[in-house]
Design a protein around this nucleic acid. Structure first.
Lengths: 211, 211, 211, 211
DNA sequence: TATGAATGAGTTTTCATTCAT
DNA sequence: GATGAATGAAAACTCATTCAT
């Protein structure tokens, strides 16, 4: 399989692409050194030669797309100045990740980490930057405002990532993603109303009076 | 293994218990007909005889605990009359599921369904009643109110289940569940403020005037 | 491979026979679950099903022939009343083990234990009864005699087993076993002279006088 | 691996050292082109370039230490004038080989030769000079004496090498070499008595009379 | 119903070895 | 001389599944 010599970088790229493809088409359970190597049109021993194992290859593939996404999404989020814009950016990010298969890739690996405890730490480490990503964006946009005080960045980030992961699983229930679309649309409609949450509740005494 | 004859029902029960135990202790990846049968102290061919296969046994075990939970959680939710009480009930449900290991069990199977496309439909079918469950509760509590109009039951149910599924995966990143606790606590604090979302936005003309 | 059903005992026997055969014909390095199963005309997974692994099967085969030999050689040695007869018995044992391939089998496994440390304990345990066997025979024949005092049973047993093991390796150098035969013949000729070793050395004072 | 260019001789030396080290630390079963090359900090293809294969490298390493030992032990033995001194020298040789790891190295390779029939001839060839070595020493010390007639050099040499090889395997059963020590100590005590073996047996007629 | 023996395909992983550069 | 990428065979072992009893 595969004909003759190739550069190392080329082989590694083929393997990373093969890993992405197999993961998306057959799920983690259908992923093995053989299936990946077949997709990459490469000898299956090279999975071990270049990456040390199947899981390590999958993680390397995740790292590769994580880096791409971080760049791409970083730019998207940087333009947001208001909560509305931030929610809009989030919805755009979700759609991009869905279309490009990033969402599926991430889900598959996270799901694999649920079933294989030895993967958990690796995944946990790789999710952390994304939590920080959301945290920073929220802080930048709402820092110092009443909304920022009501909804602390850390909690918002955790909730956002939790929801993002859930979308992956929910796709099992919602194969055409229409329900998720509806939820996101709703979120878009609610965003301009977020600041209402910070108003005084009827029957709530004023802050100065309550102290 | 096991001594002497047992009733069919007894054998099935042992297998279901074994499946639960192995799934929680070793994860889906460590689950096989042999490991389950060993935990159940039963011949492994009986997994096939009684359930037709490993995945089918796992699904049967899920059905069993789903029925238990439906009863238990139904009672919890029935008492809720306000949005605050409903969110409180949801938090209590989450904590119960976590403590009893339902959450872990559900996570493992849902994660397996992500990983093994052939399981997806089965999981989808089993999630549907829970979506209906949330939908009905929300409708009962908010039906006919402005909040009910702003947040339609269907979307709320989808969002709630998406989040619940996400919690399963997020457990990988949040092994002691403390981050999830924080998010739920925040939800509890926000619930009384939900009705604020229905207020008129500054600069928004009144409904009657806008038509 | 193999046609249809067989009894468990029959399959186990075939595997043990196959293990013996492959070990003798191809050496430990040429021994694998596949080669043994092929020789046994049995599915190779049965090596694991019945014995748990290749090394365990080999050890079981060793145990089987050790039991046979212990019975056979025990009878041979029991008849010896003098050192001459004991040496004769030892030579007969050596020839029997050589002809029946026991010597080669034992050597292969002991040699494997040299190269694979994880086998050492198992082999050590299995050699111990043979050391005891020699020790008892020597003690029975020479106990209480001057020769017995000069050559303690424990040392004789260790030396005998060491030599026995060496013969295996020496067969590499002495493929037709003629050199080993000569050494054994010499041993037979020397045996009647063993008691001479206990005589007083010229210039050695008598025991009673020296104390 | 390894930085920059090295001379051919240097590379060969590193590989020989690496082979020795890996063989002693991980046993023959843990020895591969890769592990040796790693220990030598050299590219693993050089094992083939310089030596043609792993076993050939191992044999070359054996040849190197055999040459060292031949020189060293030759000097030790040359000083022996009597059987007692010769046995003393033999014990000293054994202890030296043990301490310097020669014994372990030799054991591993000889054991491998038992295990892999294709190595046998190579080992046989390499043992021959040692047989000659013992033969010559024995002949020099006992030649023309009654003891020399009773115990011909050829048989003594074969027996000594057989025992030495056995010690290698016996190390599995006697990991701290204490039992072998005892046997050698006994040999040291017996040596002065060797000439007693040549005395006339009680009831044996005189040589001249018997002819 | 239950058993345990059997099967064949599949997995990860390692190895000696080759070869273009 | 040296390198690192590539190869194909082989290893141990596990699995779901079947089937005669």
């Amino acid at each position: 399989m595969g004909d003759g010599r190739r550069t190392s970088a080329e082989t590694r790229r083929r393997l990373l692409d093969g890993a992405d493809q197999v993961l998306r088409e057959h799920g983690y359970a259908g992923t093995s050194a053989r299936t990946i190597a077949a997709a990459a049109e490469v000898n299956s021993a090279l999975v071990f030669y270049h990456f040390g194992g199947v899981d390590q290859l999958l993680l390397a593939a995740l790292d590769r797309s994580s880096a791409e996404r971080m760049e791409l999404h970083g730019a998207t989020v940087a333009r947001a100045r208001t909560v509305e814009e931030l929610v809009e950016a989030a919805v755009r990010i979700y759609r991009t990740d869905l279309e490009r298969g990033y969402l599926a890739q991430f889900s598959e690996i996270v799901a694999a980490a649920v079933t294989k405890p030895e993967l958990r730490e690796a995944i946990s480490d790789r999710a952390e930057p994304w939590i920080a990503f959301v945290e920073e964006a929220w802080e930048r946009v709402t820092g110092g405002t009443p909304l920022g005080r009501l909804l602390p960045a850390r909690e918002v980030a955790n909730a956002a990532i939790t929801f993002y992961l859930g979308v992956n699983l929910f796709s099992v229930i919602d194969p055409d993603q229409s329900r998720t679309e509806e939820v996101l649309t709703l979120a878009g409609r609610l965003a301009p109303r977020a600041k209402l949450l910070t108003m005084r509740l009827p029957g709530q005494r004023s802050r100065s009076a309550s102290s």
